[in-house]
Design a protein around this nucleic acid. Structure first.
Lengths: 229, 229
DNA sequence: ATTGACACGTGAAGC
DNA sequence: TGCTTCACGTGTCAA
């Protein structure tokens, strides 16, 4: 609590167990008068006035440094020795390790993302027009792999599967879009998966005549859903 | 190169631009004789012999510390001030930031990594349908390559999709198998598609530890389901 | 006894 | 001009 006497207190935390008795330091404060006399010179250094100001300033600076040291040693894990040099060296090693790991994680994450997107596309209704689309260039965002959309047709039924992130109003949007595509929804299933994913399955019936070929219908549905979500 | 003279050399790198001339230090080495005399006492400290050994040891220690400091300041980016205190403080902040980022990345990657498992799975189960490229031809013959099984994992959840022909007792068989695989069914959706197809979606939760890798779990599940149906 | 680590006081140099 | 930061020598404890 006392700013002057406790200057060296945190040091014993970072160093071994030095019970550097602060009494000496307090004594030193009183010793400041003897300091100038100790030098002996009648005219000592040209800072006779604020001499002990310098002392306490240095003390403050050391205290700050010590605090920073213990703060650093607190965030660096697995420190067996609490040497200043060891703390610094291990901090450097730890930072490098963290940097490398972050870099690798980021790279792998982006790679997995892209890869899964590709495969997802492949597993879809054999639509190969995504290669021509330019909006795929914005895959840098980590959550770009979703949504995953699959559609298939059997007789008069259309099966639509959407695997996307849980967002507000996404279900109504999907259903709305499907009904706008001249389809009548027969069944609908929304199943939560994990903490933030929805797995949606919809079976709809085609009304009357087909406005286009089956292939075009599926492609169009997928494209609209991709733009929508 | 000279271990003694270059002690304070790196310090000007981390500190401002201190061109602390080393000459003084070299002088100090020669001053070691005067050092004992400077004290004046006829009987100085009880270490009159290896006194300057202590000096050069301290010098060495300081040099090591300085090197560690510049090493630390080298790995911490965006350091405007090269203060020792600033270096330490910014290193702490940087480490904390890196830790948080790594944690977030790792968590997110674990979520995404699962998605790539799907890939493996899907290419295995979906067989070689990609080469034929004609998905619409499969719509003409509904019973060609069923059942279609897909499984993926997210966190502790397993999502199983089965696209198969409508048969007696197939649902109970599937659920029974899943529960035998140390999984707890959370959600289940069975949707008729067309006249003779069922689209089944199941979300189950993994209990306790994984008996195998995620990939193996998915493979095993798919294989058993394929044999079952 | 030797070694290593620490805090302190102090002069110097830059802002 | 002061205010800050630095390296140095030194005494002192502990392994």
């Amino acid at each position: 609590m006392t700013p002057d006497g406790n200057v060296t207190f945190p040091s014993h935390v970072i160093s071994h167990g030095y019970s550097y008795q602060l009494g000496e330091n307090i004594k030193d404060i009183s010793k400041q008068e003897s300091y100038s006399n100790k030098r002996g010179h009648g005219a000592m250094s040209r800072t006779p006035l604020h001499a002990q100001d310098h002392v306490i300033a240095e003390r403050k600076r050391r205290e700050k440094l010590s605090q920073r040291f213990i703060a650093l040693s607190a965030v660096v894990p697995s420190l067996k020795k609490m040497d200043k040099a060891t703390v610094l060296g291990d901090a450097v090693k730890y930072i490098k390790q963290l940097q490398g790991r972050s870099e690798k994680l980021e790279e792998e994450l982006s790679r997995k993302t892209v890869e899964s997107v590709v495969v997802v596309k492949k597993s879809q209704v054999a639509m190969d027009d995504y290669s021509s689309t330019s909006d795929e260039s914005s895959c840098d965002q980590p959550n770009q792999e979703l949504p995953e959309i699959e559609a298939r047709v059997s007789e008069k039924h259309v099966l639509v599967k959407v695997h996307c992130e849980r967002r507000q109003g996404c279900i109504s949007k999907i259903l709305n879009l499907i009904e706008k595509t001249n389809l009548i929804v027969l069944s609908n299933s929304v199943i939560p998966f994990g903490s933030s994913i929805l797995d949606i399955t919809i079976v709809a019936q085609m009304e009357g005549e087909l406005p286009m070929t089956i292939e075009d219908l599926v492609k169009n549905l997928c494209r609209n859903l991709l733009n929508l979500i």
